[in-house]
Design a protein around this nucleic acid. Structure first.
Length: 354
DNA sequence: AAACCGGGGAT
DNA sequence: ATCCCAGGTTT
């Protein structure tokens, strides 16, 4: 059992002296007002949120006003905050509160979690701040404070680590002054125990913060392990040959190889003859497997499985714009993705062997 | 350009 | 039940 070490009293003492207590949503702390502030603060800094929050409350002073407002009006009040899905969820949640809960927030955390856009942490924030319930939050700020205080050795994105951190959060949650404690933890993380340059000298937890004792508190929380192994994707590329010409496909302007001419691709598990005959409108006479190879991007490996298809072009697919037949010389003069160029050059030597 | 972020959606 | 992503900002 981890001792409590006066954790909450120290955090609350610091809050009494240094915490922010006059923000708009810290007055008249109804569940509704706290909820709106929490959603806005999930995505945006305090100073930006304040004017949005005040305009929002003026137009939608309670859950009934929000529920009956047209979605467009809600979104226009959100305009500039981004993450519009959260505003839409909020609007839906307001309607649910009115329809199913007589406009009141449910009495339990589980009940509050049923509302769209509200999960365990946000529900705990709403209920602890507005009703002084002893429910712990675990947002990014609290994660950072706890990860440092205990020098948590693993990445909080891991399920086990996250579960352990929820236990810590609950362990330190006091039975009194719950709402203030929630506020205090968020403030501590936001103002002192920041991601870089934490001001440990001013922290109420400095004497027994294990992260600080290591000498490098910013080593915590441990960051997401760098993918040593880049993910591997596989694709099949088709070298369609008809009358000494090869079929290329113009890539969409955006995304990988945007705007370049490339070989037609077929999904890893797809039958290439079927795919070619259906999608490329050719009749396949012969198939030759070429050697597979790996092309590596900054963020993944692409295993390419090329095949040479000897075909007769039955219809006029070349008129569709996206596809075009080229002589090998023409093709090699185009902007081609490096692996495609490799295939076409290799193919030339293959051809001489046949 | 990479990390971060709570919740939702997909698997 | 678990993993991964959308949609942004911050470092």
């Amino acid at each position: 059992m981890i001792p409590k070490q006066n954790f909450a009293p120290r955090v609350l003492g610091w809050f009494d002296q240094h915490g922010r207590k006059h923000l708009p949503w810290q007055q008249n702390k109804t569940p509704y007002r706290v909820w709106i502030s929490e959603i806005m603060l999930q995505q945006t800094q305090v100073t930006t949120v304040i004017p949005y929050y005040e305009r929002f409350m003026e137009s939608f002073p309670d859950v009934y006003a929000l529920a009956k407002a047209p979605q467009d009006e809600v979104l226009s009040h959100w305009s500039g905050l981004g993450y519009y899905a959260r505003a839409r969820n909020m609007h839906k949640a307001a309607q649910k509160l009115v329809d199913d809960w007589q406009g009141e927030f449910p009495m339990t955390q589980e009940g509050v979690c049923e509302l769209p856009g509200i999960g365990r942490s946000t529900a705990a924030a709403i209920l602890s701040i507005s009703r002084n319930e002893s429910l712990a939050i675990l947002d990014g700020n609290v994660k950072r404070v706890l990860a440092r205080y205990h020098a948590v050795p693993t990445w909080p994105g891991e399920r086990k680590t996250e579960a352990a951190m929820w236990e810590l959060a609950e362990h330190y949650m006091p039975d009194d002054r719950c709402g203030e404690y929630t506020q205090a933890m968020m403030d501590l993380g936001a103002t002192l125990c920041t991601r870089s340059k934490p001001r440990c000298g001013e922290c109420p937890l400095q004497e027994d913060c294990v992260g600080l004792a290591t000498g490098v508190p910013t080593d915590f929380p441990k960051s997401k392990p760098k993918k040593a192994a880049k993910p591997v994707k596989t694709t099949q590329m088709l070298v369609l040959l008809a009358d000494d010409q090869v079929l290329l496909e113009k890539r969409p302007a955006t995304g990988i190889w945007g705007g370049l001419w490339s070989l037609p691709e077929v999904a890893q598990d797809e039958d290439i003859i079927q795919a070619a005959e259906q999608r490329l409108q050719v009749s396949v006479q012969d198939v030759i497997s070429l050697s597979s190879f790996r092309h590596t991007f900054s963020h993944y490996h692409l295993d390419i499985v090329p095949s040479e298809l000897w075909v007769t072009a039955s219809t006029t697919i070349q008129e569709q714009g996206k596809y075009q037949w080229f002589s090998r010389a023409q093709a090699l003069a185009l902007g081609l993705p490096a692996p495609v160029r490799t295939i076409l050059e290799t193919h030339q030597s293959m051809r001489q062997l046949i």
